[in-house]
Design a protein around this nucleic acid. Structure first.
Length: 598
RNA sequence: CGGGGUGUAGCUCAGCUUGGUUUAGAGCGCGUGCCUUGGGAGCACGAGGUCCGCGGUUCAAAUCCGCGCACCCCGACCA
């Protein structure tokens, strides 16, 4: 492509509404253009990158025997009512009525649709296992879209669904998909960690997330620095510490004389830390939950930690919610000062403590009296019914497998795989006949990749303030020809000739044939993120051209691979050997990608 | 859905506090000409506006007031 014919309009300044690196760079370099909050146009450059990722995913899906199809984005509510997700996913569904008044929605994911298809056609164990996938636009009315392509209301997802007669067969496919995903991210040179994850609204028991470590993401995971165990902080288990507990209440007069302190206007832990001049870790937070049957649970957690409600629900084996103000009023509990010592209506509350409380001394805790706290208490002075792993894992928590230390990483979710079981097949009637003529529900798995999000992920992984850095298999063009002075006849002719040669050899090339000053062209080359530039300037008189690498390109390659081509960085090359040199480099870097002609 | 912020040229922004010398501005970008060509050059001329929308106050509103809309950020939520 010639720059003068291309749809590329770069910006010098960071757009006002962008804060994440990828959002800013993709906008400045003319890859995307915002239509509305969380809705983007993929401009020609952006679509090229998207297509490359798309194609790699298709190739890896095909390798594990998955068949591609295309489902509708426009759904009627009937299947969604059968799984009840018409209600449970209500907060993200785009719902509306058609002209006849039928309830419709835009598909946020396709478990319902695919299960319906399979239920219709597949009747026998002989047709299983089966892997079907699509790459398609999804719609989710996110409460808060953010970060450009990172969280959109319309986005492109690859969704794969698998169907099995047995759990063993599901496990096998799950592992195959795991490997395929690893291949996809490796081919894109995207570094990733696979972490155990929570399955959320999709459902199922086992799931893993593929994570890119970056501050621009929305998730966090922990990694054990000793054994390497990784998990989303939503589910990461923490080791049970060694501790002894037996309740030994202090006499009321001793409590009031030695331990009760006046703490006016101190509503948060931060206020108290200041007021009492103590460490956050001396505090115990007491949070009141209740279930649907009005049973109350007071949950204790160390001041610097947060309660993990997913763990709490699992621990109690029921769903609980934060208690309301009226619950406090009715039972004479004091909001902000509730605690496990001298609690009114004690018999109505089960008190459970997170492990983080188990070895505390000098405890500061709500005194069940407005504006008062108890200080200098020991664990044995607290009235606790049970202990459990109830907090969100943080730095230095102990690994539940090996007691090593956890470290927390900020991350962006690239893909997520689930073992679904029979949730959808039962709800939608997807049954098969087995060898013994018994009707059984089909066992399912589902597997997603945020395809449009990957575009942002690659930018986040390697780019710097004024330069995108595409990886070799994601870049829209491999080579940028930069002609210093397009009015110079020799420079022009040599550039044109080289451009034609590269194109004829199926090497994707962008030729900057603009009548701009050299500085403008260098800046745009770096901003666009193309890995290599061939500079044709005055030295062409001596039949020499110059080859340069994108400033961060070395980061996208394993050191040993980069070592092989590093000699060419900033090097002068005989013009007549340009094609040969480029082909040599490309062959080293190329991982079975078919080049597309311009 | 709670909290905060922004809305003026294609982009980044000034002007608003204290209404009227602003027939609405700057830089960048865009067009034309000259000049220049190894890291965002220079000169000249030019095009480009619903000052987010509606309503109000006033002799007079980009500016003050009210309502609404859009977008961004933090939180909550989320495959």
């Amino acid at each position: 492509m010639r720059y003068t014919k291309s749809f590329i309009y770069t910006l010098k300044e960071t757009p006002a509404d962008t804060t994440t690196l990828s959002h800013s760079l993709l906008t400045r370099a003319c890859y995307i253009y915002q239509h509305a909050a969380g809705i983007y146009n993929f401009l020609p450059l952006g679509f090229k990158v998207l297509s490359k990722i798309w194609k790699i995913i298709e190739e890896e899906m095909d390798k594990i025997g998955a068949q591609e199809l295309l489902m509708p984005a426009l759904h009627t509510s009937n299947l969604w009512l059968k799984t009840n997700r018409y209600n449970t996913m209500d907060n993200v569904l785009f719902k509306f009525k058609d002209k006849k008044g039928v309830d419709m929605l835009l598909g946020p994911t396709h478990e319902e649709i695919i299960t319906d298809i399979v239920a219709h056609f597949v009747k026998s164990y002989k047709n299983l296992p089966l892997l079907l996938y699509q790459i398609q636009v999804k719609f989710r009315d996110e409460l808060r879209p953010k970060g450009g392509l990172i969280r959109g209301r319309e986005f492109i997802m690859k969704d794969l669904y698998s169907f099995h007669t047995s759990l063993e067969c599901l496990d096998k496919t799950y592992n195959n998909v795991y490997k395929a995903y690893s291949n996809i991210f490796e081919r894109l040179n995207l570094p990733f960690e696979v972490v155990e994850a929570h399955s959320g609204a999709i459902g199922g028991d086992v799931s893993h997330e593929f994570m890119l470590i970056t501050n621009s993401g929305e998730d966090k995971f922990i990694k054990c620095l000793s054994c390497g165990y990784t998990a989303s902080t939503e589910i990461a288990k923490i080791a049970k510490p060694d501790f002894n507990y037996s309740y030994n209440p202090l006499p009321l007069n001793e409590l009031e004389q030695k331990h009760l302190v006046y703490t006016p206007n101190a509503y948060t832990i931060q206020d108290l830390v200041k007021f009492l001049n103590k460490n956050e870790k001396n505090f115990v937070k007491s949070i009141l939950y209740k279930d649907n049957n009005n049973n109350f649970y007071l949950v204790l957690v160390r001041g610097d930690k947060e309660i993990n409600e997913i763990k709490l629900n699992k621990f109690l084996d029921k769903e609980v919610f934060l208690a309301e103000n009226k619950d406090f009023e009715i039972n004479n509990w004091i909001l902000g000062y509730i605690g496990p010592v001298n609690l009114n209506n004690r018999s109505k509350v089960k008190i459970i403590a997170d492990y983080s409380v188990s070895n505390l001394k000098d405890i500061i805790i709500g005194a069940n009296k407005k504006d008062y706290h108890f200080i200098n208490l020991n664990l044995e002075n607290l009235d606790i019914d049970d202990f459990g792993d109830l907090s969100i894992a943080t730095d230095n928590d102990e690994c539940y497998k090996c007691k090593g230390k956890y470290k927390v990483y900020p991350a962006l979710e690239l893909g997520h795989i689930f073992k679904l079981g029979t949730k959808y097949s039962q709800a939608l009637g997807a049954y098969f006949m087995d060898e013994t003529n018994k009707l059984k529900p089909i066992i399912m798995g589902c597997y997603g990749i945020g395809v449009s999000r990957l575009v942002s992920a690659i930018v986040e992984a390697y780019s710097s303030e004024n330069s995108i850095t595409w990886t070799f298999n994601s870049t829209p063009y491999k080579i940028y020809i930069l002609t210093i002075n397009i009015d110079d006849k020799l420079q022009y002719e040599k550039s044109l000739n080289l451009y034609n040669t590269l194109i004829q050899n199926n090497i994707e090339t962008l030729w900057d044939d603009r009548k701009e000053s050299a500085g403008v062209k260098f800046k745009d080359w770096e901003l666009l993120g193309i890995p290599f530039v061939i500079i044709i300037g005055n030295k062409i008189k001596d039949n020499l051209i110059e080859l340069k690498f994108n400033p961060n390109f070395h980061k996208t390659l394993k050191p040993e691979l980069f070592e092989k081509i590093t000699n060419y960085q900033n090097s002068l090359i005989n013009y007549d050997k340009t094609l040969e040199t480029i082909q040599y480099i490309i062959n080293l870097l190329n991982i079975n990608i078919n080049f597309i002609k311009n």
